[in-house]
């Protein structure tokens, strides 16, 4: 497979995963903003998910509708949904002959949906949750379509490598959003936030079944970082990343394979032998920073060994 094609598939997938992560993050925070007693601040979200300067962020930090518009439809925001989906589609466009027609059409529909002029109005005037849900569904449609129609070759492996690498990063970021604001003190966050977080990631029921003792920040961290059965967890994402990467073993490029395999393997075993207590001891933020750093190393190694073409 052309290096550029692998690169584009990988990025298409990363962008789509990022779109999903952002939408769900917005949903949690919006829902939470409606239930909070004190005034809800979007500052941590803006800090982690945009390049906004502090002063700028201050001007809209307490205006949910303005943040939603900025994060979803604002073309000036490089990390807005509309830009991310456009990037995903541009990447797909460059490899149209390597994805199925169904996947391409699906992305086209997603693209046209995020560019719909009525979207900004809906976010402003109507129920934002319903509007975000419509967009989340576009993403789900893509996941299903890719799963059902794409051949299980090298391209599929790169799509999944991108997807799970991005997902691990997103999950780490979403945890970081709230904790960075609460100064990484597990006890300072209101339990309704956890509920919304788990709900919007479809992890609420799993949580209830796993941890019978009610809401405890530590358990939430446990589920999002270390629960192997939770498809949004960091460990699940890294296990999947490793699994799809291993499919490249016999595609030639032995030295490249070994380099990347080493980095993924190292990360995988580190996280496998981590407990929530260890995370607490290290400090969640520090721990997440370390995981994110190692994920970036994997990304760089992929870049160098598989995607170098220009």
């Amino acid at each position: 497979m052309l290096s550029r094609v692998a690169d584009s598939l990988y990025w298409m997938s990363r962008y789509l995963e990022r779109a999903d992560g952002i939408l769900r993050m917005l949903k949690i925070n919006y829902a939470s903003s409606q239930g909070d007693l004190q005034e809800f601040s979007w500052k941590p979200v803006l800090r982690l998910f945009t390049y906004m300067k502090e002063e700028e962020a201050n001007t809209i930090a307490y205006d949910s509708r303005a943040v939603l518009q900025y994060m979803v439809t604002d073309k000036e925001n490089p990390n807005s949904l509309v830009n991310i989906v456009t990037h995903a589609r541009e990447n797909a466009r460059a490899v149209q002959d390597h994805i199925t027609k169904e996947v391409w059409q699906c992305l086209n529909d997603y693209y046209h949906a995020v560019r719909d002029e009525r979207l900004a109005h809906r976010l402003h005037k109507e129920d934002p949750i319903s509007t975000l849900d419509v967009l989340i569904k576009q993403g789900l449609l893509y996941y299903g379509t890719a799963d059902i129609t794409m051949a299980r070759g090298e391209g599929y492996a790169f799509i999944n490598i991108g997807k799970y690498l991005e997902r691990a990063l997103q999950s780490a970021d979403i945890l970081d959003v709230k904790f960075s604001d609460a100064h990484f003190d597990f006890s300072k966050i209101h339990t309704t936030y956890w509920k919304y977080l788990l709900l919007s990631f479809s992890g609420y029921e799993l949580y209830l079944k796993t941890y019978k003792s009610g809401f405890d920040a530590k358990n939430v961290v446990g589920q999002i970082v270390l629960n192997k059965d939770f498809p949004r967890s960091v460990i699940y994402s890294i296990n999947r990343l490793s699994r799809y990467f291993e499919r490249l073993e016999n595609q030639g490029n032995k030295p490249g394979y070994e380099t990347v395999e080493f980095l993924i393997g190292k990360l995988k075993s580190e996280i496998s032998y981590t407990t929530v207590d260890m995370i607490e001891d290290a400090g969640l933020h520090n721990y997440l920073i370390k995981v994110k750093k190692e994920l970036s190393e994997v990304a760089n190694a992929l870049n160098k060994n598989y995607f170098a073409y220009s």
Binding site: M1, L2, S3, R4, A94, Q251, N253, Y306, F307, S310
Partner: peptide, 18 residues
């Protein structure tokens, strides 16, 4: 695209993952 190709020893190659 052009950047996918390289000429070496008067032959054209494409740059692949392998």
């Amino acid at each position: 695209e052009g950047r996918d190709l390289v000429v070496d020893n008067h032959r054209v190659y494409m740059k692949t993952t392998a």
